[in-house]
Nucleic acid binder design. Sequence first.
DNA 1: CTGAAAGCGCTTACAG
DNA 2: CTGAAAGCGCTTACAG
Lengths: 347, 347
Amino acid sequence: MAVRMRDVAQLAGVSEATVSLALSGNPRISATTRLKVVKIADQLGYRPHAAARSLRTDSTKAIGLVVSDVANPFFAELAGRIERIAAAQGYSMVLCNSDEDGRRQDGYLAGMLGGSQVDGVILVPADETTPGIQNAGSSGANLVLLDRPIAVRGNDDTARRLRALPVVRGSAVQALDEVADLFVRLRHRRIGIIALPLSTQVGRERRDLLIRSLTKRGVALQDISVVAGDFRQHSAEVAVQRLLASPRPPTAFFAADGLMAVGAMKALRRAGLRIPRDVSLVGYDDAPWFDLLDPPLTTVAQPIGDLATAAVGAILALLAGEPAPSASPPCRLIHRASCAPPPNVRP
Amino acid sequence: MAVRMRDVAQLAGVSEATVSLALSGNPRISATTRLKVVKIADQLGYRPHAAARSLRTDSTKAIGLVVSDVANPFFAELAGRIERIAAAQGYSMVLCNSDEDGRRQDGYLAGMLGGSQVDGVILVPADETTPGIQNAGSSGANLVLLDRPIAVRGNDDTARRLRALPVVRGSAVQALDEVADLFVRLRHRRIGIIALPLSTQVGRERRDLLIRSLTKRGVALQDISVVAGDFRQHSAEVAVQRLLASPRPPTAFFAADGLMAVGAMKALRRAGLRIPRDVSLVGYDDAPWFDLLDPPLTTVAQPIGDLATAAVGAILALLAGEPAPSASPPCRLIHRASCAPPPNVRP
DNA sequence: CTGAAAGCGCTTACAG
DNA sequence: CTGAAAGCGCTTACAG
C-alpha cells in the first residue's frame, strides 16, 4: 500500500542501504546518487515507517506530556506551546490527562515509558511521589517535572535520582510577596487563602510563601484562614463558603489556581458580595479573558512561554545525554481591578 | 535494559511465541501456562515494545488529533475529552497545532499518516481542501473531519472519497435561528456579524444560516453587515471597529467564535459602549467563565461531549473497517445577560 | 562509493 | 498444547 524504502531503492537502481544513507545525508554517498534518491523519494511521497525506524534506532522522536487536565486554560496553553516547540525540533507530542489521579498518571507513565512509546516524558505530577514516578526514576527514564516539584524522602539510589530530575516551574516567591504587599497596603487584615491540595508540595509552598510574606508585614497568623481546594472550580466555591461562614470572615481572598479563582468569584458573587467593594480577590494563572471578567481579575501570571521552552529544552537535553538544568522563571502579579480597601476603612 | 519478551520466556521456561499467545489470552495456551507467564511478566514489569508491535501488526494504537490551536478553550476541552475517550479504548493521542495554517496541517498529516505514526487522524481542517487532505483522501487514510466540513469540487475518485469522509460537528441551524429570533424580538434592526474566514465552509455556513433566519423575520439584507475575522481575538477587535465606523452601525453583534466573542467584547467596551445597554452581543462556543464576564455572555454552546464521543467513535469504526457515520449534534443558545433592546426602543 | 547481511522485538502462520 | 521460523521496514557495522 504505502511506499517503502524498497520501492525507492528499486526505482533508483540502488540498494536500500544507499537510500537510507542518502536520505539521512550521509557524506559517504555521492552527491549525484543522493540527489537522484531524494528526487525519487519525493516523487513517490516516501515517508519512513515510524515503527520500523523506532525499533531499529530505539528512538521514537516523540515525547509524552502528562497534565492533569488540558481543559484547564493554563495547561492548554502550556500544551500548545510545548507541542509547537517540540514539533520545531522534529518531535511529536503524545498528550495525556491524568485527571489529578496518581493511578491514571502511573498508567500513562508505564505505558509510554515502559512500552518505549516515547523517548521521554514531561510530567505535571498529579500527586506526591507515586510508584510510577519511583519506577521511572529508578529505571533512569527521561523525565522532566513541570509546574510542580515533588517531595522525595529517603536517601537511597532511587531517591537521589528522583531529586536529580529537572524541575521546571514558575517561581512564585516575588509575586506572592507582592500580593501580600498589596493586601496589606490596602489595609486588609483578615486574609482567606483558597489553597491547592496541601498534600502537594506546590500547594504547601504557595500557602507558606503567602503566609510568610503576610506575617512579615504584621498580619496576625490567626487572621489568615486556609481552606484547600482540588484545582477545580467547584472546590473553590465550597472553600469560599466555608471561609465566609467564619465569625470574622476574610476581607481579601487569594485563590491559588486559575480555575479556582473563577470558582471563588462565582461563590463571592452568589453570597451577595461585590468585588472589590466588599471583598478583594487575587487569582493565580492568567488568561486572555481575565481582564473581561467582572471585575477584571488581579492575578499572578505564570511565565508560560518560558516554562514551555525550558521544559522542552530539559527533556531534549536529557535525550541527548546532556545535563538538563532545572528552571524557575518568575511569575508576576498583574494588577487589574479586583482589589480595593476593605469596607470598614473607607471614608 | 528494559525487560523484553525473551526475558519473560526464559524465566517461564517457554518460547517467546507462547508468551505472546499467553499474554494476548489466546485459548490455545493452557490456563496453567498462561497464569505462569502472566505472573512472571507482571513480576518483571514487562511492557511490550510499542514499535516492535506496531511494525509487526501494522497498528500503532494511536490516533492523531490536529486542531488549529489547543489554547483555544473550545479545542482544549475537545482535546481533553477525545484523549479520555481514546485512552479508555486503549488508544493514545498525538496532538498537533496547525495554527490555522494549511501547510503546517499538511505536514502533520503527511508525517503521521504517511509515516504510519498513528492509525488514523481526527482533523479540524485549517483550510479548504489542501494537497495533504487530498492525499490522505485518495490514499484511503483513516480520517475524520471535526468541527468543520470541507467543500469538495469535482467528481473523480479522490473527490468522491473525500465526500465520503465522516464529518462530526455541531449543528448550528436551530441555535442560529434562535439567535435571529432573539435579536428580532428585542427589536434590533441592524445586525453586525463577525464571521469566521469566509474561505472556510463553516464560515460561510454560520453567516448564511444567521442571515437567512434574520431576513426570514423581516430584517433587511442591507442592514446586515458582515466582517470576517480569522478565529482569533484580535481580528474580532478590528472587525468591530470597522462595523462601528459605518454611518449606521449595528446595534446587535454576533461573533462566530469564542475567542472572537471575547475580542468583540473588548472592542465594544473600548469604544465606550455598554453591553447590553448600548449594544447586544451573542457569542459562539461556551466556557466555564463566560457567565462571569461583564456582562455574562449569551452564547451558542457546542455539544462538546457529543462531538468528542462521535469523533472517536467514527475513527475507531474506520479502523475496524466498519461504516463510520457522520454526526451533527445540535448546538444550543444559552441565554445570559448580553442582550437587550437597542437604546432607541427603550421608553 | 556502494551492497549484502544482520538484527531491533514483536506476532503469526506452520509443524508437530 | 507448544516451538521454530519468518518477516514487518528500517539502520548500521562490515566487506569490497
